[in-house]
Design a protein around this nucleic acid. Structure first.
Lengths: 221, 221
DNA sequence: GATACCAATTTGGGATACCAATTTGGTATC
DNA sequence: GATACCAAATTGGTATCCCAAATTGGTATC
């Protein structure tokens, strides 16, 4: 694999994994030495990550994007639009058997599953569901939105019950899709997204002292 | 302005203005000499234009994205999702007086207005309408979708009547927004987008021989 | 002690040199 | 004439160098 893709992938993982905190400043030369690459692939990676919203310009330099509560709320509205549209397309498909694969994905999580796995699968549920629609633009929109949400969702203080509730909502959505009931599926998906947003924003808001203490920049709504 | 932004802007204009045809191959060194810049800003521009969908990788090199009829149809579905969502947000606003500015924009076009201006304003109508929603993600989605559609819309064979019909639909949408009738506005916007797509795809399909003759790559649906 | 100011360092933007892989054009062979 | 093959040119990927601007740290002045 090329250096360019390497740096991009590794840097993205460090940002999404919060090894580099939200709000932290980045210098091209630090990245260069950190990954043993020269500045050309580093710059390519930075440009890509900027379009993903993971980093942003800070005057002349670069900053890891802060957690922005206002942005999280806007993303929820955006998600509702694109995910519901994708879901309706999927419900209109002749062959909706692919939902079984997604259901199996959900069911692969149990009490012994590490938290990272729940986190990843919780996002992949939405991404893969959007992929089923067959619309590349809706799919990419959902995938990009989930990428932007990833860090905030990871920071979210989640109790066991909240995860169980989310999974139950996921299952209910799939059931409606399998039945071909687009309106019901859309209703449940909308409610799920709005509920997720509310819990997410509330959690981050309540814990913003803790986050600041860890050096994470959190921008209020 | 920096070279990087300069190259990006000029190259984008050449692609959107069809000075470089869809499907044409690009080499970094040609761009370099064409704009008198070195490869560093050229590469930055290429990476940005790739994310906009205006160019795409072609093995090791770069190609101006072909006109893709299947993509145009998918974009219409995407647009319907995000534009309608944005429109509903706008209809829910207390102060919807900003639609007057958009209406004035439409009204600035008359028989003496050059075709480029009609083209640009026809896109800006949708972009500015989405901006009113206040949701940055919906706005960017619409703006990016219109950018991707730009070349195809320019190639579209449009008669006077089609333009008049489009403008009438624009006005009707604004009227519904001003009245705060979200359902009516959404219905009209959906119909407008679907109708535009049908006319666009049909036009390009009918003229695909002419387009090929001009050296433009057109990928069938 | 606060502040204005200057030198040294750092940083991103740009240019260029080098390399490996691919493409290209021609040539020799059958 | 077709084809296999090789050398030269081209091209994108990478590393490195230079530069202007911005930041920084210390110092002299009040």
């Amino acid at each position: 694999m090329s250096q360019m893709q390497n740096v991009e992938r590794q840097l993205r993982e460090m940002i999404l994994g919060l090894e580099i905190g939200p709000g932290e400043r980045l210098t091209e030369r630090w990245i260069e030495s950190r990954f043993g690459a020269s500045r050309t692939p580093v710059r390519a990676a930075l440009l890509r990550l900027e379009t993903e919203g993971l980093i942003c310009r800070d005057g002349r330099g670069w900053t890891v994007s802060p957690i922005n509560l206002a942005e999280l709320e806007q993303i929820a509205v955006y998600r509702e639009a694109v995910e519901v549209a994708a879901l309706r397309l999927t419900c209109a498909l002749e062959d909706r058997s692919a939902v079984d694969v997604i259901e199996a994905m959900l069911d692969s999580c149990d009490a012994a599953t590490p938290r990272e796995e729940w986190h990843r699968i919780g996002m992949d549920f939405h991404i893969e569901l959007a992929r089923l629609s067959g619309n590349e633009f809706l799919f990419r929109a959902v995938r990009d939105a989930m990428t932007r949400l990833s860090r905030a969702r990871w920071l979210e203080i989640r109790d066991e019950a909240a995860l169980g509730r989310a999974w139950a909502e996921h299952h209910a959505i799939l059931a409606a899709v399998r039945a071909g009931d687009a309106d019901e599926a859309a209703r449940r998906l909308s409610a799920h997204i709005v509920g997720s947003r509310d819990r997410l924003v509330a959690s981050l808001h309540n814990d913003r002292r803790g986050l600041r203490a860890r050096g994470f920049a959190v921008v209020a709504a």
